[in-house]
Amino acid sequence: MRFLETFFNGQVILNYLPDLVHAMGVTLGLAAATIVTGILCGAALACLRVAGLKVVNFFIIVFADIMRALPPLVLIMILFFGMSSLGLNLSGWTVIYIVLSLVLAAFSEEIFWGGLTSIPAGQWEAGRATGLSRAQTLFHITFPQAARRGIPPLVNRVLATTKLTALGSVIGVKEILSVSSSAQSFSGSATPLTMAAIAYLIIFIPAVILSHWIERRYHFAT
C-alpha cells in the first residue's frame, strides 16, 4: 500500500494531470522542431561537403567534431547564461531548440556523409554519363541512397537527441521533466515522477515502433 500511495497517488495525479499534458505538448513540439531542423541542416551540410571546397569542408568537420564532443548541457549553459550576460536574452525553449538542433545536425551530417562515401563511384558515373549535373546526380541518385543507408543510425540518434529535451528542466522550460519535478517538490509525492515516466513512454514507444516501420519501409537490396 505504501508503494501505491507513493508512486500512484490518485489525488496527486488528478491535480497535476493538466500541467503534465501541457508539458507533453511542449516536449513533443521541441522534439519535432529539433528533428526537422537538425536533419535538414545535417543533410545540407553533407551535400555541401560533396562540393569539395577545402575551406568549407574544414569548417564543417570542425563544427561536427565540436558538437559531437561537447556535452549538450555545457552548450546549453553557455548559450542560456552566457548570452544573457551579453544582453541577448534567449528563452529556455529557444536555447534547447538551438543546441539540440546543432547537435543533431552534427551527428546527421556525419551519418549522411558516411552514407555518401559508401555509394559506389558507378552511381555517380551513371548519372553524369546520362547528362545529369553533379547536383542533380546528388539529389536524385546518390543522396537518396546515402539517406537510406543512414536510417538505422539516424533513428537511434534522433531518439537519443529528443530525450535530451529533458535538459530543458535545468533552464526552466516547461517540459515533462521540469513540470513533474516541481510538482514533486510541491506535493511531496513521487507520483508526478511516475507520471513523467509514463508520459515519456507514451511519446517514445510509438516513436520506436514508427522507427522500426521506417527502417523496414526504406530497406532495399543493393
Partner: peptide
C-alpha cells in the same frame, strides 16, 4: 559537358542501375 554527354550513351560493366 552535361549537354554533350546526352549525345554519348555509355554502358558499364557493372550496369549501375539506380537501386532505389
Amino acid at each position: 559537358l552535361d549537354r554533350m554527354r546526352l549525345k554519348v550513351g555509355m554502358v558499364f560493366q557493372g550496369f549501375n542501375l539506380y537501386p532505389q
